[in-house]
Amino acid sequence: MDTAKTLFLSTIDYQIKRLGLSGIFLYRTFYQIFTPPYLLEPLLKQLAFIGARSLLVIVVAGLFVGMVIALQFYDTLVRFGSVSLLGSAVGLSLIRELGPVLTALMIIGRAGSAMCAEIGIMRVDNQIDALECMAIDPYRYLFSPRILAGVISVPLLTAIFIVVGIFGGYFVGVILFGVSPGSYFQNMSDTVLNRDIIMGFSKSLVFGLLIVWIACDKGFNMHLDRRGIYGSEGVSRITTEAVVLSSIAILFSDYLLSALIL
């Protein structure tokens, strides 16, 4: 009983300290983002990595998600005889929920995991120590371009996801099931308010930050893991942890933001 209690307390203690470390990590990265000199080249590199190279995945995913929700909504709306609402149903669900969340989950799988593994290997291979010894601040050189790129590219990718999804829905609803094209778009523009777009946009901003923050922090601080797991096993473990943790953080903050804005 006593050992269970001390184990519990030490776990709490460790998690609080770990959270503090992540906070310091974010603070120092933001500090570097806003202090000159600004590094353009690494930022462009990261924008290409997180943004441009995720484009195909996002387009394909957006298309199928748009198609499947149009299919599901059509089937449901037919029962109520209100097929004309298809456009607003597809638009609202994509803009408010599915667009930001699914884009974020795709980016975690494509860029977040890769980023975490890359930083973790840099830690294991002493490359981060080498940076520090060369008097190059890793927060400035490694993390501020990544965080900035995440915050810029995830909202843009989300927008692309939503637009492609709306046309996927159009394809299923209008072309396959014969809903009138005019009512599809008219209904959508009638029901989607600025507030919905702001909600989707602010979610994607927060998700972009969360993905990169968790991935980089996990990799960078892997040597402080209390289980003392290092080397290749450590990298594989923190990468898994980063993916799981950021997925949960996305879903949790999704609820939080929805509740806050609605």
Binding site: M122, N126, Q127, D129, A130, C133, M134
Partner: peptide
């Protein structure tokens, strides 16, 4: 500082 394995990026 020259590291044991080079620590090249």
């Amino acid at each position: 500082v020259a590291f044991q394995n080079g620590a090249m990026f």
